[in-house]
Amino acid sequence: MTGGALRVENLTVEFDGFKAIDGLNFSLQEGELRFLIGPNGAGKTTLIDVISGRVRPTAGRVFFGHSDLSRLQEHEIVALGIARKFQTPSVFPHLTVWENLELALGFRERLPALLRPLGREGEERIAATLATVGLEHRAGQRAGTLSHGEKQWLEIGMLLIQEPRLLLLDEPVAGMTRRERELTGQLLHRIAPGRMILVVEHDMEFLRRFAHTVTVMHEGRILSEGTVEAVQSDPRVVEIYLGRGRQRGKGQALTAG
């Protein structure tokens, strides 16, 4: 495994003896936008869980620059510039859209400073982020009342406002309409320059439209890595997707068109 800003080395994660991740090696270069696919239960979310500090490795290590992430707590990892979006949208339902962003923005402040109102600069950054994710008209609304797609955008906005160096997006377009997917894909490309993004996504149409490099996981290991075309024509990839796809409908998406 060569160097990289994010390096996952010989990672194994066991849950009660079951290996969700099995000796995995993986790396991301500075400025890279990478897609991560794989059938249900492949271990994609678990990989993100380990990078973001939610799950501790059973063996192996994860480096971000010189920091060993497996020794840090969640909030310390965020402080290094790693932000994650959950598979199910998780925003704070009782806070407004504006307040959700405000909360995400204040994460580097000391607690007493949070008693003071947000400054002009902060308000401008929230307004700018609202515009980026297209939620200006929802600013005063409680996040719990947003549509599924809007919650996803709000959550992406909450990551963006923290100006992270690495974004981990777990199925960001799940449950979105076709048009929302298109907008999200464009958003991804707009925010990509200057940072690393790892996107877990099942949707092959979305992949073909927006991905360059794809990593395929299967049963806790990397099965294949390369361009969308290369991965799509890899017989091992076709096999696992077809084998399961007949029942789940994912294989068709991979091979169709």
Binding site: R54, H75, A83, F86, F92, F107
Partner: peptide
């Protein structure tokens, strides 16, 4: 937990 991943 979500708050932890917000950096607090």
């Amino acid at each position: 937990n979500r708050v932890r991943f917000c950096g607090y």
